[in-house]
Amino acid sequence: MNDIATRCIDIIAKSKNIPADSISLANTFDELNIDSLDKINISFEVEEAFNIEIPDEALSTLRTVGDMVEGVAKLTTATPSPIPTR
């Protein structure tokens, strides 16, 4: 499992107070008892952890842990690196 997946799973596990090793990319948010408010709170944690901004409309399309990991991966590669100042 890659770093993004591990970090996302850790955030979800901490948020729901469940063991991280019981969460897989195939788990749906319904299976993990993650409601819309949980999803918002988890997204804030993920945004902070990866220094990204998740569009509000994207939250409604997330159904599984894998969806979240895939979305974070896309956002982290799309985020331009800071331009170094001289």
Rank of each mutant, 00 (worst) to 15 (best):
N2C: 09
N2T: 15
A5P: 04
A5Q: 13
A5S: 14
T6V: 09
T6C: 12
I9F: 06
A13Y: 06
S15T: 12
K16Q: 12
K16L: 06
N17I: 05
N17T: 07
I18M: 11
I18A: 09
I18F: 10
A20Q: 15
D21L: 13
S22E: 11
S22T: 14
A26Q: 13
A26D: 11
A26W: 00
N27E: 08
N27Y: 01
T28N: 08
T28D: 01
F29P: 00
E31L: 03
L32H: 12
N33Y: 04
I34D: 14
D35K: 04
D35T: 04
L37H: 06
I40C: 08
N41M: 14
S43F: 00
S43T: 06
S43E: 11
F44L: 12
E45A: 15
E45G: 14
V46P: 02
E47I: 04
E48D: 14
E48P: 08
N51T: 15
I52S: 01
E53H: 01
E53D: 12
P55K: 12
P55F: 01
E57M: 00
E57A: 06
A58F: 08
A58Q: 14
L59P: 03
L59V: 00
L59F: 05
L59A: 03
T61E: 11
T61C: 04
L62I: 00
V65S: 07
V65C: 06
G66S: 12
V69S: 06
L75Y: 04
L75D: 01
T76Y: 05
A78N: 05
A78I: 02
P80K: 09
P82V: 09
P82N: 13
I83R: 15
I83H: 10
I83G: 09
P84R: 07
P84V: 11
